[in-house]
Design a protein around this nucleic acid. Structure first.
Length: 528
RNA sequence: GAUUCCGUAGCUCAGCUGGUAGAGCAUCUGACUUUUAAUCAGAGGGUCCCAGGUUCGAACCCUGGCGGAAUCACCA
């Protein structure tokens, strides 16, 4: 058994004292009729404010519930701040206004900051002009046995703000109620996903679900997580992308399908990478990547509008505008513009020379596509702040994309770069089964050379393509990154509720293996 | 995986060139029926992340480990 801190012991004693009065510290429900924000919004001095005799034209009675965040006791009356899902409201608790005996018997001594309570009362404005609820009934709904961090604020200055990242990620439940802007971020994230979904639904695309557990992983270059199915005694992989399954559905005759779901990649963690992350993938039949660029512009603008009411956002001092149209520039042109080197038609060795001239580390295992990608990543990508379509990638980097209709060695693919980071990736989908087989075979050669991110041949996918897939445009959007951009967060952990962390040593388990005789004793805290 | 920085009370932090710990808020006791970082008076609370080492003596110096952050590498 973990040793309790002083404050935890005091709270447990408080709980016992409450139970000794036949009060359940964890009752079953509370009838909520109002929320902090709506009360503040709806209060009208003309009709709700009581006069000197305590009578108002139209009493504004409410029933609210939430967590006690502050408690200011002044003898026979107190103010508490109650936090609910909408925000905070002050409650005036006077001894003679609530249940008889409750003020001195329970409220003053036994209710703590952090406890969750239900309050009935009427709304009024205090002498200091603060809209408050004058409690007529106050009920404990859940006792908090741990003290919560107390954050205070005066004149815009926040005191004792909980800033410790580890604390905040490990105990997100606390982070959410002590840092209001954290909740806002996740509300925005939900809005973003819902705006995306309704945008796609309105276009008539079908939301589908495809397997997370896959016998062959594919659709991206990444290392997978591996797991095992006992009954079938088979290795399975957690998907690294939805792509190949969604395109099978296009073969099946759906003309527009999308999926919003988690992908899993077994790679390092960073400000931009969490091993599980959310992707939206969309495939539309009979379209190509030019069409998809138009769609992406429209979609992102709509999303920005639905979150902010305008098509722009401030991130790290940059004002980013999503207003259409966005700049479109071929990858090699963008590189030429920034570095002066024209890479078109250059051989692998010529590219390596240019790479070295640009002071990049080029080794013999890197193919020409990889070198181009390095140059782009180093000299172009970080400088693209406004949303920009970078188009036409080397074929070796894009084994699932269709060859460019005009440009030899390239594919019809684009990425959108914004604030120096990729936010989506799309192409005209490769639907020639024989070219696809050849591309897979190239991947296998890479795998044999030791590239553990190269794709495997997916025979079933090839079989599907052999039945005929219409020309198709495909898109993948990193939802976490898009959320970062739209909410101005600079770490992916701030847009994922429970980011992956190393396991912590659980409280009270440091000596859990040693015998502990005190456990045998029955704990009787009920009687007091 | 590499490098740098960080880890002291429930929270936010201080702790000088090594002399075994302090503040504010929170908590406890008392006062106070319109306060708002409420106020006033008093009190308690710490395996200084862990394990070794150096030293008469370590929160502080050294070594190793654990955890976090940033940067890099890989990627979305």
């Amino acid at each position: 058994m973990r040793e309790f801190t002083e404050q935890e012991q005091q709270r447990r004693e408080g709980r016992a004292a409450i139970e000794a009065q036949d009060i359940n510290p964890y009752p079953y429900s509370w009838d909520v009729t109002d929320y902090a924000q709506s009360v503040l919004d709806r209060f009208d001095d003309a009709i709700h404010q009581p006069d000197e005799s305590g009578v108002s034209k139209e009493p504004f009675t409410v029933s609210i519930a939430g967590r006690i965040m502050k408690k200011r006791v002044m003898g026979k009356a107190s103010f508490i701040d109650i936090l609910d899902s909408s925000g905070t409201i002050q409650v005036y608790v006077a001894r003679d206004s609530i249940q008889e005996g409750y003020y001195n018997g329970v409220f003053k001594k036994l209710l703590d900051i952090g406890d969750i309570v239900g309050i009935e009362g009427y709304v009024f404005r205090t002498k200091t002009e603060h809209v408050s609820v004058h409690a007529t009934r106050l009920v404990l709904l859940a006792k908090a046995l741990r003290p919560i961090p107390i954050v205070k604020e005066k004149e815009g200055v926040v005191y004792n703000e909980v800033t410790d990242k580890e604390f905040r990620y490990r105990q997100r439940y606390v982070d959410l109620f002590v840092n209001p802007e954290v909740r806002k971020t996740f509300v925005l994230r939900a809005k973003l996903v819902s705006a995306l979904r309704s945008f796609l639904d309105e276009k008539g695309y079908l939301e589908v679900e495809t397997p997370v557990l896959q016998p062959i992983y594919g659709g991206a270059s990444a290392r997978p997580f591996t797991t095992h199915h006992n009954a079938l005694d088979m290795e399975l992989y957690l998907r690294i992308a939805d792509e190949l399954y969604l395109k099978r559905l296009i073969v099946g005759g759906f003309e527009g399908v999308y999926e919003i779901s988690k992908d899993f990649r077994n790679e390092g963690l960073s400000r931009f990478h969490n091993p599980e992350f959310t992707m939206m993938e969309l495939y539309v039949a009979y379209k190509d990547y030019d069409w998809m660029m138009d769609l992406v512009e429209e979609m992102v603008e709509v999303v920005a509008m639905s979150l902010h009411g305008e098509a722009k956002v401030n991130v790290g001092g940059n004002e980013i505008s999503f207003k259409r149209p966005w700049k479109r520039i071929p990858l090699l042109d963008a590189i030429k513009e920034k570095t002066g080197y024209d890479l078109f038609g250059k051989s692998r060795d010529e590219l390596a020379e240019i790479g070295k001239a640009l002071k990049l580390e080029i080794d013999s295992t890197m193919g020409s596509g990889k070198i181009i990608d390095e140059i782009f990543g180093e000299f172009v990508e970080p400088n693209l702040i406004q949303p920009t379509f970078i188009t036409d990638y080397p074929v070796e980097l894009s084994p699932l994309a269709k060859r460019h209709r005009d440009k030899e060695g390239l594919v019809e693919r684009f990425e959108v770069i914004c604030n120096g980071k990729e936010i989506c990736n799309a192409f005209s989908e490769l639907n020639d089964p024989e070219d696809q087989r050849a591309r897979f075979e190239d991947q296998v050669r890479l795998k044999d050379k030791g590239d553990d991110e190269a794709m495997a041949i997916d025979e079933d996918y090839l079989r599907a393509l052999e039945y005929g897939m219409p020309p198709t445009a495909g898109l993948g959007v990193g939802i976490d990154r898009l959320t970062m951009l739209m909410t101005g967060q600079d770490s992916i952990r701030d847009v994922i509720l429970f980011p992956l962390l190393r396991p912590e040593v659980a409280e009270g388990t440091e000596d859990s293996d040693t015998e502990d005789s005190s456990e045998a004793e029955p704990v009787t805290s009920q009687e007091a």
